[in-house]
């Protein structure tokens, strides 16, 4: 038996919005410790890794490991039927986990919606994400990162990210011209969520597709801050932390040109 009741149901709605364009079908791997999802996009350029810890649910029950194969577009459609303030409960039976039950309770507990989502067999690629010591780690406001990606998309389809001692610079060059945005590291004691924090081992310069970064910024509503981790010739990690877990996106760098 798998049962997970999420008081902040709106979080699940936001999460689905932030993965559905990158990945169509994926397994939700449920265990005692929580719910995890890892999947690459079709072109194998981007990877999504999502974790919701069991402590974030009330209650959470998972007697044995479950792998729930889900079409994320279908799940997203059903989740749109839940109110933003609804409590969402997910359930799957031991024997016949061929469907996932979802119930949506409104805050007054006087309206309960119940839905069933058919599950599917998904032949999942075996992924392993190694622990990495990154050359540069940047913590910055997520809305600022979203704006930079959106603005530079006007100029080019790629962005070069350069990190040096106390500056991160985003540069785009295209047919119409070029643009760049530099952010200096700042610290705000009153509003730490507005600071730009740069931890640097060595300078980094890497180029990435803006189309994918724009997709990653769908995670912006999940957290006020975004964490960018970069190392030369390594995939970029873009992470949004939540109280109950995280969503991490990885993006392969562009090489040569």
């Amino acid at each position: 038996m798998f049962e997970a009741r999420l008081i902040q149901g709106g979080l699940l709605k936001k999460l689905l919005e932030s993965v559905k364009e990158l990945v169509t079908d994926a397994n939700f791997d449920c265990s005692e410790s929580g719910i995890a999802l890892q999947a690459m996009d079709n072109s194998h350029v981007a990877l999504v890794s999502l974790l919701l810890r069991s402590e974030g649910f009330d209650p959470y029950r998972c007697d044995r490991g479950f792998s729930l194969g889900v079409n994320l577009n279908s799940l997203n459609k059903i989740l749109k039927c839940a109110g933003n303030d609804d409590i969402i409960t997910l359930r799957a039976d031991d024997n016949s986990a061929d469907s996932l039950s979802l119930s949506f309770e409104n805050p007054n507990n006087d309206r309960i919606g119940e839905y069933e989502l058919k599950l599917m067999d998904i032949d999942q690629e075996h992924l392993s994400i190694p622990e990495t010591d990154y050359d540069a780690t940047i913590i910055m406001p997520s809305a600022e990162f979203q704006r930079i990606c959106r603005d530079l998309t006007v100029v080019s389809e790629s962005v070069t990210i350069d990190v040096s001692k106390d500056t991160i610079k985003f540069t785009a060059e295209g047919e119409l011209g070029s643009g760049n945005i530099k952010l200096k590291s700042t610290s705000s004691i009153d509003k730490p969520e507005e600071s730009v924090n740069i931890e640097l081992g060595q300078d980094v310069s890497l180029q990435f597709s803006l189309k994918y970064l724009m997709n990653f910024t769908k995670g912006t509503p999940l957290s006020e801050q975004v964490i960018l981790c970069l190392s030369e010739k390594m995939p970029l990690l873009v992470e949004y932390k939540m109280d109950i877990g995280y969503i991490r996106y990885y993006l392969a760098p562009k090489i040569g040109d």
């Binding site: 690459m40 072109s43 194998h44 350029v45 981007a46 990877l47 690629e125 075996h126 992924l127 392993s128 994400i129 190694p130 389809e157 180029q207 597709s209 390594m234 995939p235 990885y250 392969a252 760098p253 562009k254 090489i255 040569g256 040109d257």
Partner: peptide, 14 residues
């Protein structure tokens, strides 16, 4: 896309 590398090398277990 020009010069776009893939993630297989980093994350895919054979």
């Amino acid at each position: 896309e020009t010069g776009q590398s893939a993630l297989d090398l980093f994350f895919l277990e054979s």
